[in-house]
């Protein structure tokens, strides 16, 4: 996998895992792949994965049980917040794209409505 943005790889992996959680690929309370398996899958140094897991734990998105592994949080509020944050980021980047196309913010809801009505 190529990590093309200028961000450190561990942060890009944090985003990948958050997306997997938000889209249900990784479910509430589910065990994450071991550091080694994840390193092999993403073809990165295991130390990098360790750092990503550490960051996710710091943000309370995952928790570690000694000798058992790392698990997705059980707390619904955190998962909702994660989803909400990701949705907001998508919307912001969408709006920035639209503005670049020359639409102003007030016009955007109407265009969205139109697209929905067209059944797209």
């Amino acid at each position: 996998m190529n990590f093309d943005s200028g961000l450190p790889i561990y942060i890009q992996i944090v985003e990948i895992i958050k997306t997997r959680i938000a889209t249900g690929i990784l479910k509430r309370g589910e065990k994450l792949p071991s550091v080694r398996d994840m390193a092999t899958e993403l073809k990165v140094n295991p130390n990098t994965i360790q750092r990503s897991y550490g960051e996710l734990e710091r943000e309370n998105v995952v928790f570690t049980q000694r000798g058992m592994g790392t698990f997705v949080t059980e707390e619904e509020s955190i998962l909702e917040e994660l989803k909400g944050n990701m949705a907001r980021e998508k919307i912001i980047s969408f709006m920035e794209d639209m503005e670049r196309l020359g639409y102003n913010r007030d016009e955007i809801p109407a265009i969205i409505k139109e697209t929905i009505l067209e059944g797209k």
Binding site: F3, D4, G6, L7, P8, I9, Y10, T48, R51
Partner: peptide, 15 residues
Amino acid sequence: EAERLREDRNMQIDG
């Protein structure tokens, strides 16, 4: 450290 360089320079090591 590779990650530190990415962060400081805002690019990948290849760049």
